[in-house]
Nucleic acid binder design. Structure first.
Length: 422
RNA sequence: GGAGAGGUCGCAUAGUCCGGUCUAGUGCGCGCGACUCGAAAUCGCGUGUGGGCGCAAGUCCACCGGGGGUUCAAAUCCCUCCCUCUCCGCCA
């Protein structure tokens, strides 16, 4: 949620930030208008309430048979009519203002490069050299079925297009990767969490997926239960409504969850393999930190995600997203992409974002620097560590051998209790 | 799913039957101060959140699980929803 005070006090700065995102910024004016209306109506309302409360108290102090009593009662009645009208007005304006604010994206950091879309994201580093293959490296959609570890037909039989089944060593490999990733992040200082995979609408709103991305979410209309599209959603609200102790920050969490997303199925794009589906697994890192530390924490978070790539010994690169591609909630985002020689593309395996106080405002997560100090909003950060299907793709394609077998990466051999999938 | 009991200012509780003196009492905790060489004990004062107006001091409004209603006035009365606990049933 956007800070109304920032818009009120520095509207030009906000307009400029929106412009960098490719938004014309007209809603800033709509917000300023609604805010002014709200405050003026609210002042009036509170004055009337004050008068009404005073009269009520007078009546309370009177004797039951006081001749003035009826006149006072009627005076209060008149004021109440005005209160009713003002309440309607305030509620209407407040609702309008909330809707406008709920759809305001975050302001990108000053060092985020300007750009119109994903073609203008900037590669900040590339690590590891692509392996040289004697043969043309096969894509995972050929490798997996050939080894009997990836079964598209049965996935489609069970759940339809875009679903698949991992079988035998394929299923074990994914479980090993999850376990290993969690262990790596534990060692980096994160606390492991097991979370609900279905959450309330308010929780989805708090992380910024609602109202804008309603169409991408699965939910049960009868129960107010929304399938999580990422562990970021429940983690954002883990401390919703709480006032944290500033001395205990940062709080670092890591959680494994499945993720459910209604993807737009466009023919010809990402249709093959397991790169994109309605259901996938992910290990997610999340931080609650002091405002002054969030920029540094983003670097740590990115580094913690990169460590997974390095320890798997898979080539990867890091991009900083430009203003035109950065997510709704984010101030700054790094994407990490692994090289997949079979599909011949860079796969986004992680997205690490500093969202500042954006989600903390929506979820109302605050802290105090010391006892008695004013409450402030925490800053939050989230980063995949990592997304499973694409990590699986990268492992399969980078570690394939001439005979179609797949070497288990060194880091995973103890977890898999095998060194080659054949 | 059935029956019952509850949700009050960090925690624990009072208040709810009989609406106004509740700007919610008390204890604990916490903060400041007094006493003390220091501490404990004791004593005094203070101690919620959000919002409006204001340079500020301050002041006003709202909040007793959520929403709605009755009333001049609601923690208190009415309706409704949610949650928690106990017992029973069912169940991986």
């Amino acid at each position: 949620m956007f800070d109304i005070k920032l818009i009120r006090e520095q509207p030009d700065r906000v307009r400029e930030a929106l412009r960098r995102r490719g938004d014309e910024g007209a809603r800033v004016d709509a917000i300023l208008t609604a805010d002014a209306e709200r405050r003026s109506a609210l002042s009036e309302l509170e004055t009337r309430r004050n008068q009404r409360n005073a009269i009520s108290k007078e009546i309370g102090r009177m004797k039951p048979d006081d001749p003035q009593r009826e006149a006072k009662r009627l005076a209060a009645l008149t004021i109440n009519q005005q209160i009713d009208l003002l309440e309607l007005k305030v509620n209407e304006v407040q609702t309008r203002l909330n809707e406008l604010l709920a759809e305001m994206p975050n302001v990108p950091d000053a060092d985020v490069p300007f750009g119109k879309d994903d073609s203008e994201n900037v590669v900040v580093k590339t690590m590891g050299a692509p392996r040289q293959f004697d043969i043309e490296p096969a894509p995972h959609w050929d490798l997996g079925p050939a080894l009997g570890i990836l079964d598209f037909e049965r996935g489609i039989k069970l759940a339809g297009s875009r679903f698949y089944v991992l079988s035998g060593a394929g299923a074990r490999l994914q479980r090993a990767v999850i376990q290993w990733m969690l262990d790596v992040h534990l060692a980096q200082g994160y606390r492991e969490m097991y979370l609900p995979f279905m959450v309330k609408e308010q929780v989805v709103f708090a992380s910024g997926q609602l109202p804008k991305f309603r169409d991408n979410l699965y939910h049960d209309v009868e129960r107010d239960a929304w399938m999580v599209p990422t562990a970021e959603v429940p983690l954002t609200s883990l401390h919703a409504g709480e006032i944290l102790d500033g001395a205990q920050l940062p709080l670092n969490y890591v959680a494994y969850t499945p993720c459910f997303r209604k993807e737009a199925l466009s023919a010809g794009k990402d249709v093959r393999g397991i790169k994109r589906g309605f259901q996938f697994d992910k290990v997610e890192m999340y931080k609650f930190c002091l405002p002054e530390n969030s920029e540094a924490e983003l670097e740590t978070l990115r580094e913690n995600a990169e460590e997974i790539c390095r320890r798997l010994d898979i080539p990867y690169r890091v991009k900083v997203l430009c203003t035109g591609d950065i997510g709704f909630c984010a101030r700054k985002t790094y994407d990490i992409e692994m090289w997949a020689p079979g599909c011949n593309e860079w796969l986004e395996v992680s997205s690490c974002s500093n969202v500042g106080d954006f989600q903390a405002r929506r979820a109302n997560v605050r802290f105090r620097r010391e006892a008695g100090a004013k409450t402030e909003f925490v800053h939050t950060l989230n980063g995949s560590g990592l997304a499973l299907p694409r990590t699986m793709i990268a492992i399969m394609e980078n570690y394939q051998q001439k005979d179609g077998s797949i070497v288990v990466p060194q880091a995973l051999q103890d977890y898999m209790k095998m060194d080659v999938i054949r």
